[in-house]
Amino acid sequence: MDIAQPDETARDDGLAALVVRAQHDPAEFVTLYDLYVQPVYRYHFSRVGNAPDAQDLTAQTFLAALEALPRYRHRGYFAAWLFRIARSQRGTFFRSRSRETDSEPAEAAPAPGDALAVVVERAPLRALLRALDDDERELLNLRYAADLKFGEIADLLGRNEAAVKKALYRLLARLQAQLEAHDE
């Protein structure tokens, strides 16, 4: 089975017309919603670990995006703008819940088709994820839960794209080394 990766360097020019149309006719915002509701939900779920809170945050994200859309200026990273709103909703959410620290990474249910052996095998990785600091967990969530491209993550975090790649790969190398040490 051949799986090709999407072109990471392609700008989302195809989105430009969609976004501008949505700005002119907000009834078309639902098209953007259809494209992004699952990544936004996965991002929130990865932080809060439960469906009701993830639903609340997702709803707040899109309601806020709908309100703010008239002021959006398209530069090719619509996802970055949307996830910036998602991140700000998280901050509000956690303050309203009177928490001092962010939640632990979600103990996600086993992926469909996972055998028990696979579930057991991933327990050390989950333990390592719990030990990461906020920035490192956020980077993983944006890349692997929300499936953002490097350019989008860089724009969102206000960093250079190459620096984001380097930081992620360095983190992966460290996690790999820790997993290998656990297996020994």
Binding site: Y41, R42, A109, D114, R122, Y144, A145
Partner: peptide, 9 residues
């Protein structure tokens, strides 16, 4: 991806 996977909404 599997460890961070979320169920579909």
């Amino acid at each position: 991806r599997s460890a961070l996977a979320a169920p579909k909404p």
